[in-house]
Design a protein around this nucleic acid. Sequence first.
DNA 1: ATTGCGGAAATACAGTGTATCGACATGAGA
DNA 2: TCTCATGTCGATACACTGTATTTCCGCAAT
Lengths: 232, 232
Amino acid sequence: MTMTVWDRPEPPTRPVPLDRERIVATAIALADEGGLEAVSLRKVAARLNAGPMRLYGYISTKQELFDLMMDEVQAEILPEEQPGDWREALSSLAHRTRRTALRHEWLADLLGGRPTLGPNGLAVTEATLAALDGLADIDTVMRAVETVSAYFTGAIRREIANLRAERATGLAKRDWQRASGPHVTRMLATGRFPALAKAVYDGTDVDAETSFATGLDWVLDAVAAKLTGPSV
Amino acid sequence: MTMTVWDRPEPPTRPVPLDRERIVATAIALADEGGLEAVSLRKVAARLNAGPMRLYGYISTKQELFDLMMDEVQAEILPEEQPGDWREALSSLAHRTRRTALRHEWLADLLGGRPTLGPNGLAVTEATLAALDGLADIDTVMRAVETVSAYFTGAIRREIANLRAERATGLAKRDWQRASGPHVTRMLATGRFPALAKAVYDGTDVDAETSFATGLDWVLDAVAAKLTGPSV
DNA sequence: ATTGCGGAAATACAGTGTATCGACATGAGA
DNA sequence: TCTCATGTCGATACACTGTATTTCCGCAAT
């Protein structure tokens, strides 16, 4: 005589199947919510209803998870359409990177941290190099790309650093001054930093985006001069 | 009748007096030896023959320790003599920052991470702004300084990132290719990255310093154009 | 029915930043 | 000189972290 359904226990729930995509997605979600430091293997695993050790089948170190996250968001940077000229290509690369970093602020902590060798990272580099191909010898082209990347990498990092600082010290319209509380004001009051004081008090409060764009234009001007310059 | 010296125990050794300077110095030493992640409050305290909690009299969070370390090495960046012209001032700032980062590689992880508001950081900014004072309206000057800083911040970060990558994968002459093992070579072999492949195979292997200097010169050229341009 | 086996989970470990507590040497007041 | 308050230091504690190891258990093949 067989047991009725009521006697038999439910079969144990099979663990949810996992893949890198899902792991990276939840890691990114966590980072978006609470910054990079909110990403822990335990929390990621918990969101996937898995034990922490489960992840080590797909990743062998936390750093690798960061690499995957980085490469994943690089997809948002890839331009969807062929750029017009090289200048538009580089400019678009810079602006797309910036906007992506504003969506995923943790990107600022990873930017330039280690070479991006994932598929999307390579694709971005490829697209960029392709846009400059033939305009000058390869070495000049690489120098151009590296210079522009160095600029917007640094600029984005600073922008987000300031953004966080402002957020931490409550709303702070001017970058410093009232921002970091009495300290900077006191320092400026000592008179030991006249040039800085002048800059803080007399400088116009320009918004981050145009500041970014202006610096970028300068750098692109420089690149333009080098690309067409020596050969003409 | 008083006890002889032999009967009396030695007085308990008073704890070594501490100050921020010593704390920061040992933290920097630790970071120089094993990178930023080798810096833990416990290890710092241990080197000073103190309990970990002792540090909280001088610091209220680990992040503050990093801020102090950052400001400390900014002293190495301050130029010892008045620069000739603005271009030399900015160039020197960039190169000194780079050399400092090569001495203290962990600096790359902190560069641009948060605004530098310590005394040395302010001094560096002051010196830089002072060198450009009067050459243009304040807003242009600030844009110039920010653009150049963004460039060398990003460039230094990438240089050190590559340096570490090479170090990690054994000696790697070319940046990528053999560097990250079979992976990149395989990717390039797929033919999906022609421009990149060309750059890797046909590009000249230029050393980091000249690459840095070249990009910097370009940016400085751009700044020069903007400083003298519109007003003339 | 038994036996491997493969993969998931539990446990374990060494370490982290930081809060809290207890002890104790030192200075003040009696 | 004795006592008591004080303030500082160290020990302990806690909630975590990344990762190594061990244990367990359902399933496939014998």
